[in-house]
Structure formats: C-alpha cells, structure tokens
Design a protein around this nucleic acid. Sequence first.
DNA 1: CGCCGCAGGCTTTTT
DNA 2: GCCTGCGGCG
Length: 733
Amino acid sequence: MESARLLDALNPAQRDAVTAPDGHYLVLAGAGSGKTRVLTHRIAFLTEVERVPPWGILAVTFTNKAAAEMRGRIETLLARAVRGMMVGTFHGIAHRLLRQHWREAGLPETFQILDADDQQRLVKRTIQGLGLDESRFPPRQATWYINAAKDEGRRPDACDPGYSPVDRAFVDIYRAYEEACRRGGLVDFAELLLRAHELFLTNAPLLEHYRARFRHVLVDEFQDTNTIQYAWVRLLAGDTARAFIVGDDDQSIYGWRGARVENMQRFLADFPGAVTLKLEQNYRSTGHILKAANAIIQRNGGRLGKSLWTDAGDGAPIELFAAHNAEEEARFVVERIRAVIAEGGARADCAILYRSNAQSRLFEEQLIQHDIPYRVYGGLRFFDRAEIKDALAYLRLVASRHDDAAFERAVNTPARGIGERTLDQVRRRARADQTSLWDAACAELAGDALAARAKSALRGFVDLIEALDAGTRDATLAIRFERAIERSGLKAYYEADSKGLAESRVENLDELINVASRFVLTQEDVDAGLTELTAFLAHAALEAGEAEGEAWEDCVQLMTLHSAKGLEFPQVFLVGLEEGLFPNARSVDEPGRLEEERRLAYVGITRARQRLTISWAEARRIHGQEQLCAPSRFLGELPPEVLIEVRPRAGVSRPAAFGRDATAWLAARGLGRGAPADEALPYRLGQQVRHGILGEGVVLAMEGAGAHLRVQVRFAEHGAKWLVAGYAKLEPV
DNA sequence: CGCCGCAGGCTTTTT
DNA sequence: GCCTGCGGCG
C-alpha cells in the first residue's frame, strides 16, 4: 500500500502520530480515539515507508486478543503476512526469550509455566512444608506478597519485611517457594517477566544483540505496565531504539495488581526528548456520553490531561434509574433490554456492566425468566477447567518429570491408592534431597521406607508416565493426549462421575484432544526451540482459551467493568452505582484507590456508543445482609444537563424513607422530583391506545416527561414496546 | 477412599 | 447468599 492510502483514513492527530519522525513518542490515546488504528498504521508506515524490516520491530500488548488483532490488522494493511516481526504479549515474548536462551536464564530446557492456580497450590504446599500455620499465613496472601515483590523486581533477599512477623514469614515462604520452583523447573507468570529482565540485565552480549535488532519498540496500554515491564522496555529500548508507546492514564484500572500509571510520566523523563501526542477525537460515543465521561475524570488529580470530543451529535440523554432494591434494578434493566430487542435491536448490542461479579446473578435470573440468551464474561476458561488441568498434568510430566506442580496434581487423580502418607514420605524425601518429587518417588521405590502396597501403587504411577512418554514419543499431539486421558484412567473416572457434570467433563476432554489435533507449531516456535508438546503446554498456560459461551451467538453481554475495558457496545447498562459497591468500600479511604475507582467509572461510561443507562438500588443484599445504600458519589459528579431520570412507573412517587441521600441528590438537580403524580401525563396506565403501524395496545408504563416521555405499550400483535411519546403519536381509543 | 456437612471467606484478575 | 475447602465418618 502506498503511503497516501495508508494515511487517508486517519485524522490529523492520528496522522501525526503515525508519521512521527525520529524520536520517542508517548501517544495519549483517549477511549475510542482509534488507538489500535494508530498503532497498526504506525507499524505499516514504518514497514512500507521507512522501510524498516519486520524483524526490526517489536510490538508489545497485554492480552493475546490484542496481540492477535494487531497482527491481523497489520497484515490486512500490508496485504501480506509479516514474518519475523515480534508481536506479542509481555508474557508471551518473555517466554519466547527464555525458551531461546534457557541456559543464560538459568532454567532447565524443559521448564514449565505455572498458572495462577498452580502457583497458589505450590505456595500452599510450601507453607505446609515449612510447618507454618495456614490460617496465620494464608496461601492467598503469601502468593499475593510473592507476586507483588516480583512485580517490583525484588528477589527474597531484597525484601525488607521490617518488624512484621507475618511479612517475615512471607519472605521465608517466598524463598522456599523459589527453591521449590527451581527444583521443579517451574516458572510463574511474574517470574517470566522478572527472568526476562534479569536475562538482559546480566547478559550484555545478549542485550546488545536484541538492541541491535529492535530499532522500533511499540507498546500498547502502557498505563498498565508494572515496574518490571517498564524496566524491561527501558533496558531494551531506552538508549538504542525508537519507542512508541500508547496508553491512557485515565484508563489505568489495574494499580491493585502492580500496574503503575506513573510509568507514563517516567517515560517522558527517562526517554530523552520524548514527545507527547494526544488523540482526543472520539469516534465511539455520543456527545452526552463524552460530556459525562469528561466531567467524571476531571475530578482526578495528576492527570496527563486530555478531553474527549466528538463531531457527532449529543445523542440521547443518559438515563438514570433509582431502584428501590437490587431486584427491581435487575427487572428494570432487563425490561429495557426487552424493549431494545422489541424495537429490532440485537441482544449482543446490550451490555450490563457491574463492579463485582456477585452482581451478575440477579440479572441472570431476570434474563432466564424472559428467555433471553446471555453470556457472562470472566467465567472459567477452557484450560482452567479441572479435568483439562488434570489431563495436562500428565503431559507436563511427560515433558518434564521434575514438574512438581504437575506431579502433585496427577499422582493420585484419579485415585490409584497413593495416599497422603505415601505422598508425605515422598515430599519429605524431596525436601531432604533437594530434588523433585519425581526423583524422590523413584528413590522411595528403591528404598524400603514404604509399605509394599504403597510402593506398588507408586510404581504404577511412575511406570504409567514412562510408558506414556516412551510409547507415544513419535505420535501426534492428539494421540498423545488421547492415550494419556485413556491410560491414566481420567476418562473412566470422569465418565463415572455421578454429579451430572460427567457428560460435559468427558466432552471437554474430547475437545482437548480436538484442540491438540488442530494445534500447529509456528515458525517462531521452532526458532525458539520448542517442541510440539512444549509449545502446546505453554499455549495452554499463557492463553487460557476463550471463556465459556459462544461469542458469535447473539446474546446479552454481562461483565465486570474491568473485563469491559477495550470493548464497546451500542447500549450500556452501568449498574450498582452505590457507595460501598462502586466506589467499592475497600477503596474509598485511600485517595489513590478512589481515583482508580473513578477511572473505572470513566471506562464504564466510555464503553457506550449510543445509549447509556445508569442505575442504582436503594437496598441490596451484600454477603447475605440486606443493606440500605446511598447513591454513588460518582452520580453526583455527572453533569445534570446530560441526565434524565427514568422512573419505574410514571406518576407513582417513591417512598421517601429509603434513599434519603438519593432524594436529596436528585432534588438538588431538578431530577429527583420528576413529574408530580399527575402532571399533564397524556396517557393513563392501562389506557387503550392505537399506533399508526403497530395497531392497538394497552399502556403498561411511562417514564420521563415532556419531550423525553416514553411509553411502554403492549400491542395485541407485536407485544410490549417502548415508544417515545413525542414521535409515536398514540391515539386514545 | 470418598462422601457429606459445616465454617469461613467474599473487589477487580489482561498473563 | 453462595462457593470453597477442610475434617469427620462410613
């Protein structure tokens, strides 16, 4: 593609970014401002116009989805496949580097990746191994501590626990856990990044090699980088490459897991002559929605500063609904969704966004009641399922006998008579000999500490793994999985499962074989020295697979605000805007955390393209306790002129006893009073009316007032529909 | 070994 | 209110 055509589709600000000359750039890209477009066009521009070879470009993202999309769009732009360009996630790229340079990184060639669940189990075992009390030192918190340290680049020796006995124990656990990982050849997610950083830090020739190779380093979602990711980019690109980073400090919502918004400011300080470019024109949302988003985010301090605008119109006002309780909120939202569908809208156009997963239930119940297909994001992903992880554990042992996490999982699943006592003996032996569980098991088989029965059970397991390895070494991946699932007894075990889950579990195992049969090794995998099995196992750990549910089916989308980042929907329902829930009670005391909640609100609002409906409930059950709720402070931060209050039933005033603050708040904005009970409403509930096209029906509900008055009518032939009274011209019958 | 019952926890989760 | 994980029992 020639450069003119490449730039045609861009606005001036985007074009400036795409064609920016020599130097470092921070592209401050507001929500819906065409960030991915800029990144992909920039890469195409570098390739086509500046003639940078593909292997001179490194493009880093956070999610596999983003990486895949970026690669796809670059290839579309260039109308050819790009070979040798490194496009991937931080973790994927770190993994690749470690595979290629495992010796320099101090890892065994067959190292395996621990996912979050594996890691937690191993930490737990480590705590037990140290003889520590799990209730005093909960594995969850210990894992948290370890990951936080790694995200900051700290090894155990660099941890300063101060005088806190708990923190001291955590450092001990961290140290022991590291040792367990070393024995088992195991690398957790944080470790991938830390090792990749250390690899460059301690290996000058290697660093020079990659510095010479990557002339351009592009990073997406820079506001989400943690300390170690920043350090890695700085080390690799700071002095020799041209860095092009894209991000939005206003959408930084992962501070709680180590992301550092400050990295954007640090970039400007650390990368000499770095220039900030802003993308502020929004192509997604209506003017009213952007006005609300801007008003909210303006309350935050220390922003790099930008303001979204659009040349599209204001659009519909943002609707605000105060429900008496959470059930009513759910009924209302689903009612509105039915109206959207009735008017010919797609279910998939509607998204319900909430602060915490527990909120999904009430909406699901309503959706089920009305037979509306829906999809909840963020459920168990394919490779996270127990039966899949069981099967993978066998193959992990085939690939690496020392993988203790896999050993623990597979050894007695399904039960084969290897009890806790036997296992404890093996674990003690492993600790004493500083070896893997596998080696310890083999040693125990040769010794005489175990009873004959235990020995024969353990022998059976060891022989099984050896047989799976030797017997299928030249077979296809699918056959290797099939054999493992069959011979381990997993298949029979899950077939016999009585809890009604049997069928789906067996189906999942079959699907695993399918996935394995479709898996193809890429050239990059081969270059990094990966075998088919190793590559597949890494793929399973790093790309946990799509969450449940068919994305292509037309269903209502339910997800947390965090999951919604990066997505957009024509109709967004932002629910549960209550103090304590959103902003979350745990975040309101610290200004920094409150600002992150506010950014979450900003993210939520900017997901909406055409219509945004915000709701809150005056009462809801939290942890089983009915609680009265005050409206979220974020509601008070919305500009009144873009809001319209929607009422459950026109003319019926809400009991004043609830929502004191809500009533006061709404009243102060002239929103709370709504229409007095019978202020010139043109229709009555239950009234018979006629519509020019839809025919005769009965008025079910009304909301809004004046020009915004909407009327819900159940038509004899077309069912219930919401109509704007001003347009619909309903005639009384 | 496996099932059942109860206690305790519970914000968000790209990899 | 709901899910997990542990401990006791058969």
